[in-house]
Design a protein around this nucleic acid. Structure first.
Lengths: 326, 326
DNA sequence: CTGAAAGCGCTTACAG
DNA sequence: CTGAAAGCGCTTACAG
């Protein structure tokens, strides 16, 4: 097999204890000794066995990350940021894709938990009544959902939604539509509430449609409903739905940004490359990912669960919104 | 701490050996005994310590996956498929994002290798002269690049490119442009070669532009170059570049699919939601991911390195291509 | 600063 | 079919 600690010890003519210390706790060893050990270990191509190290140290330096669907463009930026932050901290990421099957989430979380020092669960889909079992898998940090008793990094839609309504109001829109996301989505509840509030405050008429699945196809469907209503602007649950709306309007010869204004949520890469480019609420997925890693490491180090990190959203204005038609 | 094997053994009144066997090698134990052990282990909430198991078993049941950039839409389908396949086989995925820094790839690969039973490296960016060091990290499977001496799952662009040129030829195009991807990209070399060959065979004039980075912005730039040439159709290195071309053409009032035909490569989700929808060469990323996991498991089980799995591509015709303008 | 020894929690020949 | 014992490769009090 590979070179072991004992092989290095024999080669240097020291005990395993000293070699171990030279490698993992350099301050406890004579500098000269340390140099020799390091040099020879290097020459021999010594690589510590992680399983043995984990067994004695009681930790794996592994972090589990669960996401509902890697292919959903909302998640890659989160995954990427989590990975980067964890790497900086000397941790490695285990990844699990739930493939949008809420029933699998808890079981996959249990499996991941026993291989890692803690869990990051992005947009958990587990129903309310089983949430406690997820929280019990401490240390755990939830991303994009506030979970009772659990540590969460959430993204506050209120600000962004408020800005979106404000933007439309300034453009003269008096009647707008909101396309709801999935019924059980925590984010949708937040967004719906914020938008209702914002419209009421400005005496804007709000028409609601949905629930819709977060897919382009849903937007294609929704576009016709919206166009049949009196709304001159539409805010969609997410960019995918918004892009579907635009595609369908364009197909029907209705000009987005002139005849109808459209706003999405997520600021996913596609929103900048659509035609016309999509006005959307920027959701800081990457920041959420980094913050979640930090919160998890704090938990692993003994912090009390329950902290809620709240990130803000903001409107990014592009070409899909314009003055209300007169 | 948690319940250990010894605790379960004490509770059942059996030796640790028997409990161990009942759990991991049920056939070697009396059925009745097995039942008792399983029942009690379950009741006590016993979960085997993976580090200890790995240390004795000599394997981690972990597979490392390296990707150049999780946020690049080409990779999520691969990651998703790898994860799904690995999960089916009882393996868990460690993920690393190289963030498009070729120089980091080898080092990250080494780190991942010592935590896992084997490596999957998607679209390796490591330069030719260091490739051997990557191959030395056996068991390793490369996805989307053929590496001397290594096991690879590659995607053969030739077929798809041939179909693309065929499609354009049938539409009456006699002069087409190819937008090259990054200079050192293995895929680009393959695609360029295939397209040259296909054009020569049909006596079609080929204009080459680039190299370009695989980004929308590159396409925006390229669009003007193409339009200034005599080409009536353009094949881009990937969908991102193709989408940039379309966006710019639309902006300039040039109708895609009528004045100019555009073809991408990847068949990424965006290609179906662009306007007009993008004709593109479907690249079977998910199939590649599954095949790579299978190849890696075979290597881990002792197969000889060097196998090359070749997957085919095919053209998906949408609305961005049409008859050549007369 | 260094070494001998025990221990982390499992698995696996080897006996019986 | 079951048990005692050794061992996987490290780390860490405990002595010196």
């Amino acid at each position: 097999m590979a070179v072991r600690l004992a092989d290095v010890a024999a080669a240097v003519g020291l005990s395993g204890s000293t070699v171990s210390r030279a490698l993992s706790d350099p301050d406890k060893v004579n500098p000269a000794t340390r140099e020799r050990v390091l040099k020879i270990a290097q020459e021999m191509g010594y690589v510590p066995n992680q399983s043995a190290r984990s067994l004695t140290a009681g930790r794996t330096d592994l972090i589990g990350l669960l996401v509902p669907d890697i292919a959903n463009p909302f998640f890659p930026p989160i995954i990427k940021a989590v990975q980067a932050r964890a790497n900086d901290k000397g941790k490695t990421i285990l990844i699990a894709d739930i493939d949008e099957r809420p029933g699998d989430e808890l079981q996959r979380a249990r499996l991941m938990r026993k291989r890692s020092d803690g869990l990051l669960i992005a947009s958990p889909r587990t129903p309310q009544d089983q949430l406690a079992e997820l929280v019990a898998l401490q240390p755990v940090v939830f991303i994009n959902r506030e979970v009772p008793g659990g540590t969460s990094v959430i993204i506050d839609s209120a600000d962004g939604m408020d800005q979106a309504v404000d933007h439309l109001a300034a453009l003269g829109h008096r009647s707008i539509a909101y396309l709801n996301g999935p019924r059980r989505s925590w984010s949708n509840t937040q967004r719906q509430k914020a938008i209702k509030h914002a419209c009421r405050r400005r005496s804007i008429t709000l028409h609601e449609f949905g629930p819709f699945e977060p897919q382009v196809q849903s937007g294609v469907h929704a576009a016709d409903l919206v166009h049949a209503s009196e709304a001159t602007a539409v805010i969609a649950y997410d960019d995918l739905i918004a892009l579907g709306v635009i595609a369908r309007l364009t197909e029907r010869g209705i000009r987005t940004g002139e005849d109808v204004s459209v706003i999405g949520v997520d600021d996913s890469p596609m929103s900048a490359m659509a035609y016309p480019t999509l006005t959307t609420v920027h959701v800081p997925g990457a920041e959420a990912g980094s913050a979640a890693v930090d919160a998890l490491l704090a938990l692993i180090d003994g912090a009390e669960p329950g902290e809620v990190v709240n990130l803000e959203t903001r409107l990014v204005v592009r070409s899909s919104t314009g003055p209300a038609p007169s």
